[in-house]
C-alpha cells in the first residue's frame, strides 16, 4: 500500500484540503446536470432543478440536522422514524382529535426535539455509542408509529392543504412553501455553524473531544445540543413531508436515515467529524435528487439504480475522505 500512503500524504498536506470534497461534489453535480441537459431537451428547463428541491425539501431539512450530528463525529439513525412519527402524530391530532394546526405544529416539533435531547443525554452521560442509542430511538419512534396506527391517515386540514397546494411563483417557475422553509433552515444552520459559539464548539468536538474538554468548552451542552437539533430537524422534516404527502403513515420515510447520511457524506462532511459545511449537504441532496431525475428522464433505467449509484458514490467519497485525512495517532 505504499502508493496509497504516498497519495495520502501528498493530499493531506494540501492547505485547501477541507474544501476538496466540496469541489469534488460541485464538479460531480455540474457533470450530472450537464449530461442531463445534453441528453434531454426538457432537462434545461429551470423547473427541473426547482422540482428537485420540491421533491426533496424534507430530506434537506433532515440532512441539515444530520450534518450537525456527524460534525461532532456522531451519527443519528433515528431520523427516518422520527419523521414518520411526526407525520403520524400530526395526522392523528388533526384528523382524529380535531386539533387546530397552530397547536399541533409546536407540539410535534417539541416532541422531535425532546426525543433528540433524551438520546443526546444517554449518549453523553452514559458513554454509549451514538449508533446504538439512536438505533433504540429508531425502534422507539417506529414502534410508537405502529401503536398509533398501521394504516395511512389522509390529512385535509385547511392549513396543511394550503401549504401543499400553494406555489411561490417567480416568472414561469415556482417552488412550494416547504422549499422556502427548508432554505431558511439551511441559512440558519449555516449561520449557526459559522458565526456562533454553538457552531464552533460543534466543530471543535468533532476535531478532538478531549482537547475541547481541556479547553473548557461546554462539551456536554454541545453534544446534547446537536442531537436535539437533529431531533428538531427530523420533526420539521416530518411536517414538510406531511405537507408533501398530505398523509400520516407509519411507513413514511423508511430508510431515510441512509439517504440523509449519504447526502451529508457526498456533501463532503467527514464521517469522523470536525470538517464539513451545510452548503455541502445541500449539494449532496441535489446530487441524490438529480440522480433520481436523470433515471426518471432516461426511462430505461429502473429506480433501483439510484441505490446502486448512491452506494458507488458513497464508496468514492469515503475513499476520498480516507485519502485526505491525516492518520490519527
Amino acid at each position: 500500500m505504499t502508493t496509497f500512503a504516498e497519495v495520502r500524504s501528498r493530499l493531506a498536506g494540501t492547505r485547501q484540503r477541507r474544501y476538496l470534497p466540496l469541489y469534488a461534489t460541485l464538479a460531480l453535480l455540474a457533470l450530472m446536470y450537464g449530461s442531463g441537459v445534453v441528453q434531454y431537451e426538457a432537462f434545461s428547463d429551470p423547473q427541473v432543478v426547482l422540482n428537485v428541491f420540491i421533491d426533496n425539501g424534507f430530506l434537506l431539512v433532515v440532512a441539515v440536522g444530520m450534518t450537525f450530528v456527524i460534525l461532532t463525529g456522531g451519527i443519528d439513525l433515528s431520523v427516518g422514524a422520527v419523521v414518520a412519527l411526526t407525520t403520524m402524530v400530526s395526522a392523528t391530532l388533526l384528523e382524529g382529535q380535531g386539533w387546530p394546526a397552530f397547536a399541533v405544529l409546536p407540539l410535534v416539533l417539541l416532541m422531535g426535539a425532546t426525543l433528540g435531547f433524551g438520546m443526546g443525554c444517554i449518549i453523553h452521560y452514559f458513554e454509549i455509542q451514538p449508533f446504538i442509542v439512536t438505533l433504540a430511538g429508531m425502534f422507539l419512534a417506529r414502534g410508537l408509529c405502529y401503536t398509533i396506527g398501521t394504516s395511512s391517515i389522509t390529512i385535509d386540514e385547511p392549513f396543511w392543504t394550503t401549504m401543499a397546494q400553494s406555489k411561490v411563483r417567480f416568472g414561469d417557475n415556482f417552488i412550494s412553501p416547504s422549499v422556502v422553509i427548508a432554505l431558511v433552515v439551511v441559512l440558519v444552520a449555516a449561520y449557526v455553524l459559522a458565526f456562533t459559539r454553538l457552531g464552533r464548539n460543534t466543530y471543535a468536538i468533532g476535531g478532538n473531544p478531549r482537547s475541547a474538554h481541556l479547553m473548557g468548552l461546554p462539551v456536554a451542552r454541545t453534544r446534547i445540543g446537536v442531537y436535539t437539533i437533529s431531533g428538531f430537524c427530523s420533526a420539521l422534516g416530518g411536517v414538510l413531508l406531511s405537507f408533501y404527502m398530505l398523509s400520516g403513515n407509519s411507513l413514511h420515510a423508511v430508510g431515510m436515515e441512509l439517504d440523509a447520511i449519504a447526502a451529508v457524506v457526498i456533501g463532503g462532511t467527514l464521517l469522523t467529524g470536525g470538517s464539513g459545511f451545510v452548503l455541502g449537504t445541500v449539494l449532496g441532496v441535489l446530487v441524490l435528487g438529480i440522480i433520481q431525475t436523470l433515471i426518471t428522464f432516461d426511462g430505461r433505467l429502473s429506480s433501483w439504480w439510484t441505490k446502486i449509484v448512491i452506494g458507488a458514490l458513497l464508496f468514492a467519497f469515503i475513499l476520498l475522505q480516507r485519502l485526505i485525512t491525516p492518520r490519527k495517532q
Binding site: 477541507r18 458565526f195 456562533t196 459559539r197 464552533r200 464548539n201 466543530y203 471543535a204 468533532g206 476535531g207 478532538n208 478531549r210 482537547s211 475541547a212 481541556l214 479547553m215 473548557g216 468548552l217 470536525g274 470538517s275 491525516p326
Partner: peptide, 28 residues
C-alpha cells in the same frame, strides 16, 4: 500531545470558547 483542534484555524484555536462577539455573532 497538543490539546488543540487540528481542524480549526489557528486564530480560532487561540480564541475558541472566548471569541469576541456582538449579540452572539462571532467577529472573525
Amino acid at each position: 500531545e497538543i490539546n488543540l483542534c487540528p481542524n480549526l484555524s489557528v486564530a480560532e484555536n487561540i480564541f475558541i470558547g472566548r471569541e469576541p462577539r456582538l449579540l452572539g455573532h462571532i467577529r472573525w
